[in-house]
């Protein structure tokens, strides 16, 4: 799976511009799906299985997009001013490298600091693409870029940009490939524009009209020095979400996931996340309401260019998803 993960995380796909990632996923899953299509916003929606008597229409959603930047102005000396696409922290930017969709690369520089103890704002940053004037700058206003960094393999731990949420994309692809016998009609949604407000999952869920929704996404951890107070740790298994900043998981699904993990002997943790949310929060609000939950993969340094996950958590997340999908879901 490492090879697949590497392929996915090294693609450029900021919110709204996911077609490169989508093409990779299509190739990976084509032999295993019953049908797939791309909707109006660019979500990739793949169906596997037909609904048997004890089955439901189940929607899984992992988002393809990543945080990135978008050019707002090219100044007279060819420096590119930019703003963020999704939750990019200015503190993670200086010295970072970016790659635009058109192939142009650049490095992020900073204005002279107003004072040493004050953090930079995004307006104080710029991208140097090696140009010397507005006319020879290969970037124009509205062009989009992602952070540029190869994946680092530390054994069980992998580090890359866009682990959020390509690691879940990888988990969904793997689940789709391994899923043999399911009573459900399972829709594997690879959603767009999650990082800018869960927009893809909103329309995908309306289109799929599922009975149950499960997001697959990353969650933060509390296992780094003087970090956030949070119970989730890397390497202790997938986290079953009870709540996050924008939703409460359906308690029946939480119970079902816990029981599935225990029955199959899969390590798991309970997740209570104070901020942030996932596709599940909008799936839940769709039409007349969709009982929804989330299987999370613990991830350190979220929304930095070096997000870290544990490959064992990914494997266990796949097993948990397979366990859930292979059995009746009784709510």
């Amino acid at each position: 799976m490492k090879e697949l993960i590497k392929k996915l995380v090294e693609c450029i796909g900021p919110s709204g511009f996911e077609h490169i990632v989508r093409d990779v996923i299509k190739d990976e899953i084509a032999p295993f799906v019953d049908e797939m299509h791309v909707d109006a916003l660019g979500n990739l929606i793949a169906r596997k299985g037909t609904r048997k008597e004890s089955g439901l229409r189940v929607m899984l959603s992992a988002h393809m997009d990543e945080i990135g930047i978008i050019a707002t102005h090219i100044d007279e000396n060819g420096f590119v001013r930019f703003t963020t696409v999704g939750g990019v922290f200015p503190r993670n930017c200086p010295g970072g490298r970016v790659r635009f969709m058109n192939g142009a690369q650049g490095v992020i520089g900073t204005e002279r600091a107003e004072s040493a103890d004050k953090a930079y704002t995004i307006e104080q940053l710029f991208i140097d693409v090696g140009a010397s004037s507005r006319t020879d700058c290969p970037v124009k206003v509205g062009d989009v870029a992602a952070f540029d960094r190869p994946m680092l393999d530390l054994g069980n731990r992998l580090v890359a940009k866009a682990m959020d949420d390509r690691i879940s994309v990888a988990a969904q692809i793997e689940t789709l490939r391994r899923l043999k016998d399911t009573p459900h009609e399972v829709y594997f949604v690879f959603s767009v524009q999650e990082e800018v407000g869960l927009r893809g999952a909103t329309t995908a869920a309306y289109g799929v009209d599922p009975d149950v929704g499960i997001a697959v996404d990353i969650t933060m951890t509390g296992d780094t020095p003087r970090g956030t107070k949070m119970e989730v740790a890397l390497g202790k298994g997938p986290a079953i979400k009870v709540r996050d900043g924008r939703m409460l998981s359906d308690p029946r699904l939480v119970k079902l996931m816990v029981e599935a993990a225990e029955k199959a002997g899969i390590p798991y943790q309970m997740e209570v996340l104070e901020g942030g949310t996932t596709d599940a929060s909008v799936i839940q609000l769709t039409r007349a309401g969709v009982p929804s939950g989330c299987v999370s993969i613990p991830c350190r340094y979220v929304h930095s260019p070096s997000e870290m996950v544990d490959i064992r958590d990914v494997e266990h997340a796949v097993r948990l998803l397979l366990e859930i999908l292979s059995n009746p879901i009784l709510l």
Binding site: A71, T72, G207
Partner: peptide, 16 residues
């Protein structure tokens, strides 16, 4: 590109 918004923000998320 940046802040602000228009009615497109909700229209594009309508239905499917």
């Amino acid at each position: 590109p940046g802040g602000g918004g228009t009615d497109a923000g909700v229209v594009h998320r309508s239905r499917g």
